[in-house]
Design a protein around this nucleic acid. Structure first.
Length: 631
RNA sequence: GGAGCUGUGGUGUAGAUGGUUAACAUAUCGGCCUGUCAAGCCGAAGAUCGCGGGUUCGAGUCCCGUCAGCUCCGCCA
């Protein structure tokens, strides 16, 4: 109960831009802890909690030496622990032996001290420090450990190579802002657990050593010693297990689940990441949305102090692509794409005509005040559009007299005016056009749209459900249909007849949760009868034997009274990063990997001994080649 | 797999068009100093410029390769 009131209190004072609350904002927490246990006899208080109420109290503190200010006969030390800083004072009149010891102190030494909390005189109060009204006059000290000079400053807002931070991650985490991130992440997870528990969900663990299944991302494989030439795979998500738990009659499952995908990394992608994994039986999509919205709203309320409007907006995939050129639109700004198929048709511009004749689309993006863009800027944008898969980019400056553009000659003046009107273009704007396959057109312009995103002004986050994803997409490389979400996603009932006639138009009962242009979760209602599931496998070009071999256990389970069920997985790392305002999820993962999936601290991944390989009956390709060469 | 950016004392940076002893701040070490909190003052030590090769009389600077980090595309939900 006390925790509840503490949290809501914090929320109230925390409504502005991203700000961490203090690790221990109230004295009660720390005091309760020390009164209850003797496990920490070296400390009676956390450094960061001391205030005028403690004046004249004898305290025991322990922590790390921060800044040292040596005045000769008087030494000030900033003592830091998890909670914050307190100024220690050593006076040589308090005893020479102690003072000599204080002179030895260096950055990051670990010390335990005893002393008296004193009120600082008015002119020596430090207003920028929460504990700045008091200081501790030290009467006894023990140096618990010394320290090498750290490779970077242990303080907030440092500007060092990320290389170095990752190599010495334990020191990086010692910085207050990083400790606060860990604390915020802890609180997020705690809120999730409390919320799910409150809604009757059971947290269940699922295996990390499981079997490799086709589809989806590349698996991380773990060789089996007992079964030579066989491998476990680390789960890309607990997908199959959570569905099987529904068959088990669990009805409501969740897990803070670690997931593994062996794909290339990004600022928001790590090879191992954490999902809030949820699955429920006997629930409608709307019911699941309400549940999820409640959870997310709770997090933003408790941690950011932001009241979120519910229910969240919903938008079909098709509309998201048409208007924003992405399946995860950022709705905090406009700059919508404009469909000009009908007008493009009337032009003499072959590129436009050609795209339309081939079933493609022509769309435009208005760049307000685009006249600031130089010819070179436009060339760069064209290059970017090409890199993104478009055949090219058409552009024009909009001026009072008409268009100034290499393509203006293909457009009659009335047509130009019509396009201007449709795109709400004014003199001084630039218009960008892409004519290509519908999907390419949308994607490329969507990317350019984000290029021109105005600076964020609103603190109000924009949550959005993207719904009605296609069930399949065509995989050019493999020349077959692939699941857009995953193979267990149920088609919409009314689209079932299309499965045979026109599978690519079938819509799935799948949904993504999008926040400010970031996909923070996704899920679907699942197939719960084995015949439909078998049919989907077939449409995915999985032979009967193959699907029986890979997913037989699922098909079998579905035949034993599987309840209708569905769920969602929320990206915890991404959510926490949004809550802290960090650009990269590495900031909120204690020990992240680099872009090439290595850990600079431990040196993982690393070579292993021949003996280990032998036990696993593995031979490296390199080894094999050498042996072959010898023959 | 591809593209871009970055790499100079411990750290953060400066080093136009190639030119002698690679500069500054901070940290570190030593000395002085009783009210600092980015303490101050004096002094010292510390980098063959990511690595390898090339061009050149001469390379931190130009070229090629390579490694590492970051960002993006492909990939990934």
């Amino acid at each position: 109960m006390r925790r509840e009131s503490l949290l809501s209190g914090l929320a109230a004072q925390n409504s502005g831009p991203v700000e961490f609350e203090d690790a221990f904002s109230t004295q009660t927490d720390a005091e309760a802890f020390f009164q209850n246990g003797t496990e920490n006899a070296q400390k009676t208080h956390y450094c960061g909690v001391l205030n005028p109420e403690h004046v004249n109290q004898e305290v025991k503190l322990a922590g790390w030496v921060g800044k040292r200010r040596d005045h000769g006969g008087l030494i000030f030390i900033d003592l830091r622990d998890r909670s914050g800083l307190i100024q220690l004072v050593f006076d040589q009149h308090d005893g020479l032996e102690l003072f000599k010891l204080a002179e030895c102190l260096r950055s990051e030494y670990v010390v335990a001290v005893e002393g008296e909390v004193l009120k600082r005189s008015e002119e020596t109060i430090n207003r920028s420090l929460p504990t700045g009204e008091v200081e501790v006059r030290v009467k006894g000290m023990k140096i618990l450990n010394t320290s090498k000079t750290p490779p970077f400053y242990i303080e907030d807002n440092i500007n060092v190579d990320e290389n170095l931070r990752l190599r010495y991650r334990y020191l990086d985490l010692r910085r207050p802002e990083m400790l606060k991130r860990l604390q915020l992440r802890h609180r997020t997870v705690k809120l999730v657990r409390d919320y799910m528990d409150h809604h009757d969900f059971l947290e269940v663990e699922t295996p990390l050593l499981t079997r490799s299944t086709p589809e989806g991302a590349r698996d991380f494989l773990v060789p089996s010693r007992m079964h030579g030439s066989s491998f476990y795979a680390l789960p890309q998500s607990p997908q199959l297990f959570k569905q099987l738990l529904m068959v088990s009659g669990l009805e409501r499952y969740f897990q803070i689940a670690r997931c593994f995908r062996d794909e290339d990394l990004r600022a928001d992608r790590q090879p191992e990441f954490t999902q809030v994994d949820i699955e429920t039986s006997f629930i409608s999509t709307e019911g699941l949305f309400a549940l999820t919205e409640g959870l997310v709203a709770r997090l933003w309320k408790e941690i950011r102090g932001i009241e979120i409007k519910r229910p969240f907006l919903q938008m079909p995939y098709r509309e998201a692509m048409d208007r924003f050129g992405t399946d995860k639109p950022d709705l905090r700004y406009g700059l919508e794409l404009v469909d000009i198929n009908d007008l493009a048709q009337k032009s003499e511009f072959k590129v436009f005509n050609f795209a339309l004749e081939n079933g493609g689309a022509v769309k435009g993006l208005r760049v307000p005040d685009g006249k600031r863009l130089s010819r070179k800027d436009l060339d760069d944008l064209t290059l970017l559009a090409r890199q993104l898969g478009a055949k090219g980019l058409a552009w024009t400056y909009v001026e009072e007299e008409g268009w100034r553009s290499p393509i203006s000659k293909f457009f009659e003046q009335p047509l130009i005016e019509e396009i201007n009107r449709k795109m709400e273009a004014e003199s001084g704007d630039v218009l960008l056009f892409v004519a290509d396959r519908w999907e390419t057109t949308c994607q490329v312009l969507g990317h350019l749209r984000s290029h021109f995103a105005p600076p964020v002004t609103s603190a109000q986050p924009s949550f959005l459900w993207v719904v009605d994803f296609p069930l399949f997409h065509y995989n050019e490389e493999e020349q077959r249909n692939d699941s857009d979400h995953h193979p267990f996603t149920a088609p919409r009932d009314e689209d079932m007849p299309l499965l045979d006639s026109d599978p690519l138009t079938v819509r799935a009962r799948a949904y993504d949760l999008v926040l400010d242009g970031v996909e923070i979760g996704g899920g679907s209602m699942r197939i719960h009868d084995s015949s439909t599931q078998a049919k989907i496998f077939k449409l995915l070009s999985l032979s009967e034997e193959e699907s029986r071999e890979k997913f037989g256990f699922l098909l079998e389970a579905l035949a034993y009274g599987a309840p209708p069920h569905g769920g969602i997985a929320l990206g915890l790392d991404r959510m926490v990063a949004l809550l802290t305002g960090d650009e990269s999820i590495r900031q909120v993962i204690p020990f992240p990997k680099t872009a090439t999936a290595s850990c600079l601290m431990t040196g993982a991944p690393s070579a292993v001994s021949c003996k280990q390989l032998e036990e696993l009956k593995l031979k490296l390709q390199q080894q094999q080649q050498e042996e072959d060469n010898e023959k």
